[in-house]
Nucleic acid binder design. Sequence first.
DNA 1: TTGTCAAGAATGATCGATCATTTCCTAAAA
DNA 2: TTTTAGGAAATGATCGATCATTCTTGACAA
Lengths: 231, 231
Amino acid sequence: MQGLHLIEGTETKTRASAVYLDIRRAILEGSLVPGAKLNVRDLSARFQTGLSPVRESLNRLAMEGLASHEDNRGFVVSPVSVPELQDLTQARCWMNELGVRRSIELGDSAWEEAVLVTCHRLSRTPRSRADGLPGPNVDWEQAHKAFHQALVSACGSNWLIETCSQLYDSADRYRSLARLAGAARHDPLDEHSEIMTAALDRDADRSARLLTEHFQRTAELVQTVIRTQEG
Amino acid sequence: MQGLHLIEGTETKTRASAVYLDIRRAILEGSLVPGAKLNVRDLSARFQTGLSPVRESLNRLAMEGLASHEDNRGFVVSPVSVPELQDLTQARCWMNELGVRRSIELGDSAWEEAVLVTCHRLSRTPRSRADGLPGPNVDWEQAHKAFHQALVSACGSNWLIETCSQLYDSADRYRSLARLAGAARHDPLDEHSEIMTAALDRDADRSARLLTEHFQRTAELVQTVIRTQEG
DNA sequence: TTGTCAAGAATGATCGATCATTTCCTAAAA
DNA sequence: TTTTAGGAAATGATCGATCATTCTTGACAA
């Protein structure tokens, strides 16, 4: 079997992994909405594959928290809620504060350069797509995550880095949902630059404060959207 | 299908979940040693079930970090190492410090009572098994985890509570491995009481310090064992 | 109308056969 | 002796049929 391409650009060794990545992306992008049933046979048909790879994918997603599972009742896209968003945001603030403080303490010049470069790339990447379509700009999403991960990358703990990455993805899902619901984004271009400057100045307190505010501001916007949808 | 009992006391609705819990326990107890191959057909035979439930279990374990997976190369019990133990310990210290500080801040009398009761139960549960066999005393393990989870239970963040639980289990695996390798345990009975007292006194700094020392002391013991095994 | 219950349909879970890839073993060549 | 090629064996991955459970539907009774 050659590499699989269930979706353009995705190439993996097994069907299970390919399907996993595709469903994962669909959930994070919001094209699979919270609460949606993840019917194994339907997904098999959609991805032109058997039942086993789909079930394996869903098991992975459930452990990751992106899907929910109950024995004999199948899988569902994990629901979203304001309390869960608040919990998530709190965790992001804690973890990123820890990460950036340690990185400021331990980071060498390579770390500084990574922060500088990823921030620069982020500022050069347009927020909206080049083709004018309304979807997310994958390049920007990637640059944004790269910058936030760079900030904590010198903390010395792989566990913390991985945790920040997972939290980022979960929060990203909320952002996508808010965008789909038509939230206008106050452009946070300068916020990122400010955070970068604080980090390169090795000002731990200011970095932590700016990061926390950055996360909370985003969360508040998303919260508003969820509330208007629920009500 | 009635409840399944693959192992005494385990009862779940699907084979996949039953097998998952059994393999998980085997890994945490150390009867499946780090690096051991998790052969799907062998496990199917051992648990008297088909291939699918086993594969689903292994996918879950891999996402959880207890198993490692590479496409087309199957599953392996996750290896252990001194650096990973250090990372894990660091993370435990951070997370439990956060958890206990917030709990001291937010916890009501129900939290205090939970800490008191779980500590009491722990002190009343013998460390070694009633039947004199050398294995772990499941009651003690359970009481120990209950106490540590009680300490952070009022932190207000489900995410943090769940994270502490996962970290506990991962660290517990290291402890089991050290015990199997014949590590003599300096009995930490009083450590737990001291932590309890500090928490009930609402002394956040002392609680955090004692917890961190508690984790680090255990980790150092385990490290020694791993090093002597490696060397 | 509302509640109950028994088919029947839909869906989830499991099975073992089969296909694909990797690993192992052996023999010939360097 | 070491290296390498090739084929067999082992293992991983996938498939679709089948079994088990849950959900739906509609007739009937209260």
